[in-house]
Structures are given as structure tokens and as C-alpha cells.
């Protein structure tokens, strides 16, 4: 099939950037979205032009490296998949496809479609961990009895791959779904109790310091999350924060 691609091109973080049109013929419906971009880049390199820079790593939907705002939606039109797992059969011959980087003040563009998501790393450093003495005598985590319901909720929260789709989808570029998943994952388990209050306070403080917006409960993040992280986690983060402050 033939596609018209409108792609954000930006030389570096200082460049203003603009949308550039590309025509791509012979796109196979079996290609993944990233393979389609690989084909485009092959052609650009063949013509002596600069290829389009984009993030990718595992291409299996588990690492959270790929991003892209495709036709106004993070990770494209499909639900519960990342861009690398999106296939061209979801598009039609003659379609125009807008491809933009995830937009947020806290996610500055590095080049073209690559954004710097290290703000998420700094939020994690602020409290997204448990301190365990790994002396060799550490208790087997599976030996601690945990309510199945809580274990399931913690696991669901832990499936967050930190891709940033929630930020990209939110009209406020809020990182609440990400932070709430990371806080919930520990708040629900016995191992997370020691640093529970500090974690909620410090991760929220870092989230604010990075320049993410506030949550206005539109629910766009939950709808776009490739891992289906639920809004109930945001309510839990609100409770954790309030509990830590009171």
C-alpha cells in the first residue's frame, strides 16, 4: 500500500523542528510500524538524506523504549500494544500518517522522534525501590504470605514499562499514571512498607520538579497505556500522598 507520512524532523534539541512529508510506496501490511520506518530510512540513506531518528530496542513490546505519537495517539491506533507491536495492516492504502515525538516539557526532543525520558529515571531514583540488605541471608520473597488480591494488583501495577504514553496522551502531560503504578507496586506488598510514606512524597515531589502537569482525571492515559495500567492506581497514589502528609 501507499502512504503519505508526515514526520517531525528536528536536527537537535536546539533546532526548532518542523513536519516533513514523505511518500512511501509498497508498504506491506505484514510490516511492523518500525519496520516501515526502517524501509523509509533505507530509502533516505540511499538518496543521501539524513534518516529519521526514532527510539527502539526489544521490538517485543516489553522494554518501553519505543514511543511515537501516531495520528494523535501514543503507540498508534491499536490498543494495549506498543509501537513496535503495531502492524501496518491497521492502516489503509492512501492513508496519511502523522508521526510525532511524545510531547512534554519534561520530555525534551533529542533528535527527530527521540525524546529524553530520563525524567522518569529521576522519579524512580527518588523512591521507586526498596532497600534490602543483600548479604546472602536475604529472606526468599516467596516465603512471605501475601493476599492474592493484593499480589495481583501489585503485579498489574508492575507491568508498567515506563514508556511515557500516559504523559503523551494526557492533555496536561501528567506523569501520574506512571508514578502511581510505581508507587502502587510497592505500597501493596509487605516489602514496600518501610519506605512507603517517603516514597509517595519524594516521587511526587520529583514528578512536580520535572515539570509534568497535574492529573485532571480525564482518563486518556488509561485508554492509551499499552499495559492497561488502571486509574485505580492514581486514586491509590492520591491516598498514599495524603496518608504520608497527614
Amino acid at each position: 500500500m501507499k502512504l503519505t507520512l508526515k514526520i517531525w524532523r528536528q536536527k537537535n534539541s536546539e533546532d526548532k523542528g518542523k513536519m516533513v512529508d514523505y511518500q512511501l510506496d509498497d508498504v506491506s501490511p505484514d510490516m511492523s510500524f518500525l519496520e516501515m520506518l526502517d524501509v523509509l530510512n533505507d530509502q533516505l540513506v540511499g538518496k543521501g538524506e539524513e534518516p529519521v531518528a526514532f527510539d527502539h530496542d526489544c521490538r517485543e513490546g516489553i522494554c518501553g523504549t519505543c514511543s511515537l505519537q501516531i495520528n494523535g495517539k501514543p503507540h498508534g491506533p491499536d490498543s494495549l500494544v506498543t509501537t513496535c507491536q503495531l502492524h501496518m495492516r491497521k492502516f489503509n492504502d492512501g492513508d496519511t500518517v502523522y508521526i510525532e515525538p511524545f510531547r512534554a516539557k519534561a520530555f525534551p526532543v533529542v533528535k527527530d522522534l527521540i525524546v529524553d525520558r530520563s525524567a522518569f529515571d529521576r522519579i524512580q531514583h527518588a523512591g521507586g525501590y526498596i532497600s534490602v540488605n543483600t548479604s546472602g541471608n536475604t529472606q526468599d520473597a516467596n516465603a512471605i504470605p501475601i493476599n492474592k488480591d493484593d499480589a495481583d494488583k501489585a503485579f498489574d501495577a508492575a507491568t508498567c514499562i515506563g514508556c511515557g504514553a500516559c504523559v503523551a496522551a494526557c492533555k496536561n502531560a501528567s506523569a501520574m499514571l506512571f508514578v502511581s503504578a510505581k508507587v502502587s507496586q510497592f505500597a501493596l506488598l509487605p516489602q514496600g512498607q518501610v519506605e512507603r510514606e517517603r516514597r509517595a512524597e519524594n516521587m511526587v515531589a520529583q514528578m512536580d520538579a520535572e515539570g509534568f502537569g497535574a492529573c485532571t482525571n480525564t482518563g486518556a492515559c488509561e485508554a492509551e497505556c499499552p499495559k492497561g495500567i488502571s486509574l485505580t492506581n492514581i486514586a491509590r497514589l492520591n491516598r498514599e500522598f495524603l496518608g504520608a502528609k497527614l
Binding site: 510531547r103 519534561a106 496522551a169 492533555k171 502531560a173 501528567s174 515539570g211 509534568f212 480525564t218
Partner: peptide
């Protein structure tokens, strides 16, 4: 402050999910 969190807007925005 929410508007300031996204200084560069999207060229194409889908609002169907909210």
C-alpha cells in the same frame, strides 16, 4: 501550569479517549 507542561503542541491530536 498544565498548559506549560506541553509547550509544543501536537500537529495531530486525537481526543476520543476522554
Amino acid at each position: 501550569s498544565n498548559r506549560a507542561a506541553r509547550p509544543v503542541k501536537y500537529a495531530m491530536k486525537s481526543n476520543k479517549n476522554a
